[in-house]
């Protein structure tokens, strides 16, 4: 047991993660070869060319519409779609990512506000606690993501188009983690602290602002981290129906229609980068808030 050793960034973080990532990339290249080779062999046989194995490997890495694009193909597609074209162009992934990001953020904002309101209601109104909380949990066993396209179509029928419908789907997905996390957070003060507020003759309102809200802040940031990721998924799926012409989701759908696998992978990675940035941003905001509020470093 080497528990007492101080964990080092290099040996406990970077090195193991690096090795796993390297293994994944190697596995990716291997998969590229094995998944693309059958088609390539077929093609070569039809054209009557015979190639050596190493040439075959090269060919599988250079296909136009590969079953599995090689990492460098995806990387170059990403490079071209972000830095190779102006940001405002429809071929720029930055433009599409921005479209998705804007509806993600709007939906995330709605969802967070809604979730906090629900949590405040549940902690203060017993009838709401008993009747509503079970349904909030049930609401998430409904695969609402799956009916997102329908909601878009319905809202389009009543002339609500653009950002709002997509944002509403993000709202539905993101309010739940916030509501559940905040109920937990607002109830996290111990009975002793609540009794202390009581002995100060604090009103419900004062106890709420001076005790419950500060106590719930760590829960708040943990839950909005989940919520922002869910918002992004909601926005992407919201773009799947044919109505959407811009956004990561529409790029995915277009790529799947025309079998542009490289484009699909590039869009997927762009979406992942956006997700990571959002989560990192929330994480930093949480840390800064904790420090400002004087939390002990853990």
């Amino acid at each position: 047991m080497n528990k007492l050793r101080e964990p080092s960034l290099l040996f406990d973080r970077i090195f193991p993660v690096g090795v796993i990532v390297a293994l994944l990339v190697i596995g990716w290249y291997a998969a590229t070869f094995f998944l693309n080779a059958p088609y390539q062999r077929d093609l070569n046989a039809r054209q009557g060319v015979s190639v050596t194995t190493s040439e075959l490997v090269g060919q599988t890495m250079r296909q136009q519409k590969p079953t599995m694009p090689a990492p460098h193909q995806v990387a170059s597609a990403l490079w071209k779609a972000t830095l190779g074209v102006p940001v405002t162009s429809k071929r720029s992934l930055v433009y599409h990512a921005w479209v998705t990001l804007s509806s993600t953020l709007l939906g995330f904002l709605f969802g967070t506000v809604l979730g906090v309101l629900i949590a405040v209601g549940i902690t203060h109104i017993p009838a709401l606690d008993r009747s509503f909380l079970p349904w909030i949990i049930t609401s998430q066993t409904i695969p609402m993501l799956a009916v997102a396209p329908m909601i878009i179509v319905i809202l389009a029928a009543v002339n609500i188009t653009g950002l709002i419908p997509k944002a509403l789907i993000s709202t539905y997905l993101s309010f739940f983690p916030v509501a559940v996390g905040m109920v937990k957070g607002l109830r996290s003060p111990e009975a002793m602290h609540l009794d202390l507020m009581h002995s100060y003759d604090a009103s419900t309102w004062q106890a709420f602002w001076k005790l419950r809200v500060p106590a719930s802040v760590p829960f708040f940031f943990t839950s909005i981290k989940v919520a922002v990721a869910a918002s992004l998924v909601g926005a992407i799926v919201g773009e799947l129906p044919t109505g959407a012409v811009a956004g990561i989701g529409s790029k995915l759908l277009a790529g799947s229609y025309y079998s542009q696998t490289i484009d699909i992978w590039a869009a997927l990675i762009a979406g992942s980068v956006v997700a990571m940035l959002l989560v990192a941003l929330v994480d930093v905001a949480g840390r800064v808030t904790a420090r400002v509020m004087g939390a002990r470093p853990t």
Partner: peptide
């Protein structure tokens, strides 16, 4: 990965 929109691999899986 748990923060990523994994659902996006659906078109790739359909191709495979």
């Amino acid at each position: 990965v748990s923060a990523l929109p994994i659902i996006g691999i659906a078109p790739i899986m359909v191709i495979w």
